[in-house]
Design a protein around this nucleic acid. Sequence first.
DNA 1: TCGCAGCTTTACGTTAACGTAAACTTGTTT
DNA 2: AAACAAGTTTACGTTAACGTAAAGCTGCGA
Lengths: 153, 153
Amino acid sequence: MSKTYTISELASEFDVTTRSIRFYEDQELLHPTRRGQTRIYCSKDRVRLKLTLRGKRLGFSLAEIRELFELWDETRSGSEKQLHLMLSKISERKAALEQQMKDITMVQLELESAEIRCRQALEELNEKPTAATKQTAAPTNDPIPDSSLTTTR
Amino acid sequence: MSKTYTISELASEFDVTTRSIRFYEDQELLHPTRRGQTRIYCSKDRVRLKLTLRGKRLGFSLAEIRELFELWDETRSGSEKQLHLMLSKISERKAALEQQMKDITMVQLELESAEIRCRQALEELNEKPTAATKQTAAPTNDPIPDSSLTTTR
DNA sequence: TCGCAGCTTTACGTTAACGTAAACTTGTTT
DNA sequence: AAACAAGTTTACGTTAACGTAAAGCTGCGA
């Protein structure tokens, strides 16, 4: 009795094409029922679609996402072996996410300093606006950030 | 006079194939010099390779990474227009990274709770090990996390 | 009853990011 | 000199994640 959705409702809500949604079904990420030949999506399907799109934004492949879904389904009522397998998969994912977090903060720092340099360059342009139209290179400007990093990885 | 690298040195250091490195050059992400027909990579190339790989881990396409490199090169000695373009690109990237951060913390929370459920299931298995060999489903187990979320996006 | 909007299946096309194989040069070790 | 490792170019193959076109069913408002 709970709420259901048509394919185009989900498509517009999450801003994906119906083609993609059908493709996800083909990859067994979604399992809508049918009324006649028309697909009917339940709230579980909606959640799975949301999780799928979030996984994609994080760089997961559809196959990996499917694997996680399946593992989760098997885990309920699962044997001890299945549970341990699920736990190892989980810690695997957690490690990957932590690496991504580090990557993001690194890039954020670089973007910050790049932004600062941009603003400084703008200030210098506006301080001496009469310095003719042909502007050559700024006085001192290191060739590249060169991210003072040792062998991080 | 600063340090240089061969293609296989970089390949093994960053754990990519030489094919990939040559491909990145083809996409104009790297610009090694030549000694005869052999490629010579300077430390700038090394940094760019590292940044490229980090960008990839974050889901950036090679084209996007190249665009950022080029923008950065044009920015030094750039006009006011170029600088503003660079600033807008930077804030664009920052927004995308913030979204990724949110995604990651969401998934991390879900993984945490999944892990807890796994461990609880394991405990219950070990509390009643004499309950015959055929184990049916656990007593109460909600069908899916159903991520109590409203229309986040 | 007509037509059309929305759904369906089938199937071929496309792009990115390499993999892989073939055939060649160059340096150096035996 | 012969062979071997490491580099090179050229070019076709592959996978993932859809796009896109063709052709057909289906309820329903004019």
